[in-house]
Design a protein around this nucleic acid. Structure first.
Lengths: 222, 222
DNA sequence: TCGATTTTGTAACAATTGTTACAGCACATG
DNA sequence: CATGTGCTGTAACAATTGTTACAAAATCGA
């Protein structure tokens, strides 16, 4: 349970306290193999689930069946925590194991007990919920970029940060395209065009910003 | 305070109880005129704000300065409730008064007091937060439609519902376009094309579904 | 009712993205 | 080293959306 005490939900609760809290509470440890579907879009969110091991991806299927990758989640983070309560407490994404996965699972009513028992847990929960809302809100903003070039400019400025230099893209073009909600050849073209226009130097996964001003301008164009 | 007791945050709390709860708590009533900016994207969300009178709109500015209308909010609903806590408790949208507006404003620390005082309030808060997350999630899904026709099919099927017949669009094309994140002439073209293709009959704001099957197919195409 | 303002309808052209297909490259494995 | 797999680069064409501009229609307020 080392990982569990590192979960942001238990911040400020030391391991002894955590054990005491979990004493009268029914939880499970669940395991999944690579590729297994942990939760399907539309399934009920009836439990708190915290990553103990491995990695999962959250994907949203658009109406035509194409997937938009929302994020990868690793320990010690919780899954779909914002969707546990409410009139329609369904999971809005497919959650799939990227590799072998181990989850701490706490049914909803046990979780409610925890919320009532521990003000620290309650406060952490509310912080995390608002962080999730900010994340979703930021995703909306990103999807509102009108052009692939705009999305790319935004993404590159984010991963490169304020210091110029070469970075290695952490994802394949296919994965990035899925994240951007566009097709891979189109993303490749945008990279090529921006390389040819002198904004970046792109060699495979290696990217260097050549003209940060132009890149920021592209960002502002959306 | 009639409106306040109707707010979903106070569901299950009768007016006497509500008065008792608010007794030791510092709140304000704020007024705004049509067009006034109530909160700006990036402003701190340090208070619970509940609509008492009037109507406000939440808009997100995209990088190029174009606005995407997120929603209109009326009494007795709370504003930006999902963003009050967390590391980055900033408001992600501009909130502008559509007309004369009156708000109940409760500073964050007073709100925390309420959460600790009333389990009903706490439960209602968690329900509403999850409802907001579902709403944001649905917005992401909507923005992932690839075509304007797809967005329109989705929107029309939503407002018409399962019963065929003529509906009057509740918003101008310009407003709908803003909501869809597209331009007004392009939206008009999509409406015209779908009219010409026999999916709908469109006369100004009046829309009748002619071929629901084709419309659902269009929805599936994204 | 009239004038002002807003909304709708539309065309033509430009820009961007999607689709399909294939070749070449990089990396891992036997 | 050879082979298989996954990724990248790219072209050509099709489809969709944005932009600009203007006329007509609808709505609103005095």
């Amino acid at each position: 349970m080392n990982v569990l005490s590192k979960c942001p939900l238990f911040k400020g609760i030391n391991p002894e306290e955590l054990n005491a809290l979990l004493k009268d509470i029914h939880y499970q440890i669940k395991k999944y193999q690579k590729g297994q579907m942990i939760a399907m879009s539309g399934d009920k969110c009836n439990a708190l689930m915290i990553m103990l091991k491995g990695s999962v991806k959250g994907e949203m299927m658009d109406p035509s069946g194409k997937s938009i990758k929302i994020e990868d989640i690793e320990p010690p983070k919780p899954l779909a925590i914002a969707f546990i309560f409410g009139e329609e407490n369904t999971c809005p994404v497919n959650i799939v194991a990227n590799n072998d996965v181990e989850l701490f699972r706490l049914p909803k009513d046990s979780m409610i007990k925890l919320l009532q028992k521990s003000a620290i847990f309650l406060n952490n929960f509310m912080d995390i919920i608002s962080n999730r809302a900010q994340f979703l809100s930021e995703k909306i903003r990103f999807l509102s970029f009108q052009t692939i070039r705009g999305k790319l400019a935004h993404y590159l400025l984010q991963i490169v940060g304020p210091v110029d230099g070469e970075v290695i893209l952490p994802k394949s073009q296919e994965e990035l395209a899925t994240m951007f909600g566009v097709t891979r050849p189109s993303l490749g073209r945008a990279i090529r065009d921006m390389h040819n226009d002198g904004l970046i130097e792109a060699k495979g996964k290696s990217i260097r910003i050549l003209d940060r001003k132009l890149l920021i301008q592209q960002l502002k164009k959306g």
